[in-house]
C-alpha cells in the first residue's frame, strides 16, 4: 500500500471546501459599530446608584433571613426546568452587575432565525411586534432573544433596557445552558399556567450562561429581576421585565407559534 500519509496529504489538496467568506469587512464593521455604540446604551450613573441601593436592600433581606432559625441553615435548593436551573444561594456574587443587551446574539429577522432554530418559536401575541430579534448560536440548537419596547404595562427595565425581554431555547438540547442564582431575599414560586410548568422569580437575582464547563463565571452573568419561566413542550421561554407576576402570566398565556 502506498504511503498512507502521502495519500492523505494529496487527498487534503482535493477536499472541496466551501468558499471562504469575506470576513475582514464584516469583522471590521462589527468592531467599529461596537466602538461607536450610543452613550445611552452604556450604563448610566443613575443605574449604578439604583444597583447599589438594590444590593443594600438585598444584603438586609439576606441578613434578616439568616437571623430566622428555620432559614439560617437552609441549603441550596435546586428547581430545574429543562433549559434553566434555578439555585437558591445564601447571597449573590459580590461582583454581579447589570449588562443591558448582554448575550442577545446576532441581530436577525424572525424568518431567518426560525430557519436556524431547532424549535418553533413562540411569540407573545399581546404585546405587538418585537423591535429586536437576536439569535444566540452559542446555545445548542440556538436560542432566540426578542426585545419589546416599553409600553403600557411594560415599563423600561433598568436591568435590560427594554420593556420585555423574551428568551427561548430548546430545553431538550440545552438542558443546562442557563442558570439562576436566587438569594434568600427573592421570592420563587412554582405553579402551572394552562397545564405548563412555570416558575416566577420576584426580586433581584443573577442570570447566567453556562458554557461547556457548566460552571458559573461572573463574566457570563448579569443581574436580573422579575422573570417568569414557562416550559412549553421542549421550549423553555423566559419573560423578563419590570412587571408583576399577573402581567407576566397574562403575557405567557398568549404565547403562540
Amino acid at each position: 500500500m502506498p504511503d498512507l500519509e502521502q495519500q492523505l496529504r494529496r487527498l487534503g489538496e482535493s477536499v472541496d471546501y466551501p468558499s471562504t467568506p469575506a470576513l475582514a469587512p464584516r469583522v471590521g464593521a462589527e468592531l467599529r459599530a461596537a466602538a461607536t455604540r450610543p452613550a445611552d446604551r452604556r450604563r448610566p450613573t443613575r443605574l449604578r446608584l439604583a444597583l447599589l441601593i438594590a444590593a443594600a436592600v438585598l444584603l438586609l433581606a439576606a441578613a434578616a433571613a439568616a437571623a430566622v432559625p428555620a432559614t439560617r441553615h437552609a441549603l441550596l435548593e435546586l428547581l430545574s426546568l429543562r433549559g434553566e436551573s434555578v439555585e437558591r444561594v445564601p447571597a449573590l456574587p459580590a461582583n454581579a452587575r447589570a449588562r443591558p443587551g448582554w448575550r442577545l446574539g446576532h441581530p436577525t429577522t424572525l424568518a431567518a432565525a426560525s430557519r436556524r432554530l431547532s424549535f418553533t418559536p413562540l411569540m407573545p401575541r399581546s404585546v405587538g411586534d418585537p423591535n429586536g430579534v437576536f439569535l444566540d448560536s452559542q446555545v445548542p440548537g440556538h436560542s432566540l432573544n426578542l426585545t419589546y419596547p416599553p409600553q403600557a404595562g411594560l415599563p423600561r427595565s433598568r436591568l435590560t433596557g427594554v420593556g420585555l425581554l423574551v428568551a427561548e431555547l430548546n430545553g431538550d438540547l440545552a438542558p443546562t445552558s442557563f442558570g439562576k442564582l436566587v438569594p434568600r431575599g427573592a421570592r420563587v414560586e412554582r405553579f402551572t399556567i394552562d397545564g405548563h410548568l412555570a416558575l416566577w422569580v420576584d426580586g433581584l437575582h443573577v442570570f447566567f450562561f453556562k458554557a461547556a464547563d457548566h460552571v458559573f463565571h461572573v463574566d457570563r452573568s448579569r443581574l436580573a429581576a422579575n422573570a417568569l419561566l414557562i416550559q412549553r413542550g421542549n421550549v423553555l421561554v423566559r419573560l423578563e421585565g419590570g412587571f408583576d407576576k399577573a402581567t407576566a402570566v397574562a403575557i405567557a398565556r398568549t404565547l403562540a407559534p
Binding site: Y17, A22, A24, R32, A35
Partner: peptide
C-alpha cells in the same frame, strides 16, 4: 482597527476551514 482587518484577511481561510 483597519490593521486588524489585515490580520483577518491573512487568516480567514484557515479559520473558516
Amino acid at each position: 482597527v483597519h490593521a486588524y482587518e489585515g490580520l483577518v484577511e491573512r487568516h480567514q481561510t484557515i479559520a473558516f476551514r
